[in-house]
């Protein structure tokens, strides 16, 4: 309820427009919560070597699709019925773009969980620990980026460039070490490949977070910036 009241304060226009924005933000909130849960379960599947979790996470994709359509529907209604301008318009357009980023993150979470199939956790504890550390960073970035977007917070682009660089360097180091291990133990190639893919999906979640941050900055300042 608190968020809904904040939503109303953030938007101009009529009561009906604000109600529609409440609805849009509510769908966006539900979608975000669901995908964050999926990402966390994806990490858990890696740590606990729980293949059963993969099925549960995959089942959630239907709900993700459904919520994405609901967000799209609210966007359509707001444009068709209320013709917003300026930051309200930017928020609505950017919502469509970040919904796509959230949606793709959900698929990444499913892929992360799936990669546990070929990785024996007990034999790769040190590497898995580092993968999980990377995953926690990406997950936190994802959560923070959406929170900033929904509350129209002003973000420091330099700080986000540093966060992105840190994830990129951790990711690159992990890949190097996994490849070194494959070279040393060729029988471990399949597990190694799965782990490479898992880290790639985790790094992509951090990339989605950066894209969401770019949209947040656009909504607040109307300026396009790139985190590279």
């Amino acid at each position: 309820m608190k968020i809904l009241n904040e939503t109303r304060k953030s938007f101009g226009g009529t009561i009906r427009f604000k109600e529609l924005m409440d609805e849009l933000n509510s769908y966006l909130g539900k979608l975000t919560d669901l995908v964050i849960e999926m990402i966390e379960k994806g990490h858990k599947a890696l740590i606990e070597d729980d293949e059963g979790l993969f099925k549960k996470i995959e089942e959630n994709l239907c709900k993700v699709h459904e919520l994405s359509y609901q967000v799209e529907d609210s966007v359509q209604s707001s444009l068709a019925l209320h013709q917003p301008f300026a930051s309200d318009l930017r928020y609505i357009l950017s919502t469509l773009k970040i919904t796509n980023e959230i949606h793709r993150s959900a698929h990444d979470a499913v892929h992360i969980a799936n990669s546990t199939t070929y990785v024996d956790i007990a034999l790769n504890k040190e590497l898995i620990k580092r993968v999980v550390e990377l995953a926690k960073r990406a997950s936190l970035m994802f959560e923070k980026s959406i929170d900033a977007f929904r509350h129209r917070k002003e973000l420091d682009i330099t700080e986000w460039k540093k966060l992105d660089d840190r994830v990129d360097s951790l990711h690159a180091k992990l890949i190097d070490d996994i490849i070194a291990k494959i070279q040393k133990e060729p029988s471990w190639a399949r597990a190694g490949m799965s782990l490479v893919l898992a880290t790639r999906y985790i790094e992509r979640i951090a990339d989605h977070a950066c894209n969401i941050v770019e949209e947040s900055i656009f909504v607040v300042t109307s300026k396009r910036v790139k985190i590279e």
Binding site: F11, G13, F17, F85, A86, D88, L89, R90, S222
Partner: peptide, 17 residues
């Protein structure tokens, strides 16, 4: 002006605040 007004009061007016 309608996409990125410079002044806050313009933004508030055109967006119905």
């Amino acid at each position: 002006l309608f996409r990125s007004p410079i002044r806050k009061i313009t933004e508030e007016y055109i967006s119905g605040r």
